[in-house]
């Protein structure tokens, strides 16, 4: 089959870790649809991108000065599909992006997000939820590039993995020289629910500027035993308790989804997966 490199880590590392690039079927890239969007200066917009059928896509966005965009991208592809998606955003001066991404579908997917904080004081807040079960494979590569002064970028990732799922998440904060007083923050919390899981995390921080504050943190572990115990002592079954704890863990992302029906859909979708385990 014809394979192609879809995304690459901004700085390579040991090959044996298998995180340097994401390779996908060329066919997927050929099918991919393009969407170009410009948010005019001063405007405020909301956008929803949903992947539900056999489709792949790239969204290119320019957010003008002082404009604000809330972009919600939901990937709820059928279980037997392969999928790729890509988001590229450039933010002008004082522009704001709130990106809420949910990756819960597809048999195997690769997603790529590249956000350039070009204008001074532009800000991007990115929240990502991913969930993997069965023998699914999840590949994500997020890059926040700080170019402008006093830019702010936050990347918060919440994940759950079960079955024999495999996941790679790469998150990069890249401070370019001149991005004075930029602030970047990255956090990934992964809850691992079964022993067959392979979980790879690559939190990267690159800096060519000293006048910045950069932080990243990753934690990966099983579901909090104390919480489970507490809930079970209130009469919940282990399965119910797990569901509840996981729901709480995903809440920071779920509550950012404005559409109540969509939120419910994702929530019950994850719960259903948990039950099938």
């Amino acid at each position: 089959m014809n394979k192609e490199i879809f995304s690459e880590i901004p700085m390579r590392t040991w090959n044996w870790l298998g995180v340097n690039e994401a390779v996908v079927d060329r066919d997927l890239l050929v099918e991919s649809q393009n969407l170009d969007i410009k948010i005019e200066a001063g405007h405020q917009e909301k956008m929803l991108v949903e992947y539900r059928k056999e489709s792949c896509g790239t969204v290119n966005i320019n957010i003008g000065e002082n404009a604000v965009l809330k972009l919600t991208q939901l990937q709820l592809m059928p279980q037997n599909c392969n999928h790729v998606n890509e988001i590229n955003v450039v933010l002008e001066k004082k522009a704001k992006l709130q990106l809420v991404a949910v990756e819960t579908g597809a048999k195997s997917f690769a997603s790529k997000v590249n956000i350039i904080l070009k204008g001074d004081k532009s800000q991007a807040d990115v929240s990502l939820l991913y969930f993997g079960d069965g023998d699914r494979s999840l590949d994500m590569n997020y890059v926040l590039e700080f170019q402008g002064r006093k830019t702010v970028g936050n990347l918060e990732v919440y994940g759950g993995l079960m079955g024999e799922s495999q996941k790679i998440f790469r998150g990069t904060l890249d401070f370019k020289q001149g991005a004075k007083q930029a602030k970047g923050y990255e956090k990934e919390n992964v809850v691992v629910l079964s022993s067959g899981v392979r979980n790879r995390s690559v939190p990267i921080m690159l800096s060519g500027e000293d006048d910045v504050v950069g932080n990243h943190a990753v934690s990966s572990g099983k579901i909090n035993e104390d919480k489970l115990h507490y809930l079970m002592s209130r009469g919940l079954s282990p399965a119910e308790a797990r569901k509840l704890v996981l729901e709480a863990a995903f809440n920071p992302v779920l509550e950012l989804i404005d559409d109540e029906a969509l939120r419910q859909e994702i929530d019950s979708y994850i719960k259903e997966r948990l039950e099938n385990e």
Partner: peptide
């Protein structure tokens, strides 16, 4: 630059 990888 900081480039850690965790493979668990």
């Amino acid at each position: 630059d900081t480039l850690p990888t965790m493979d668990i």
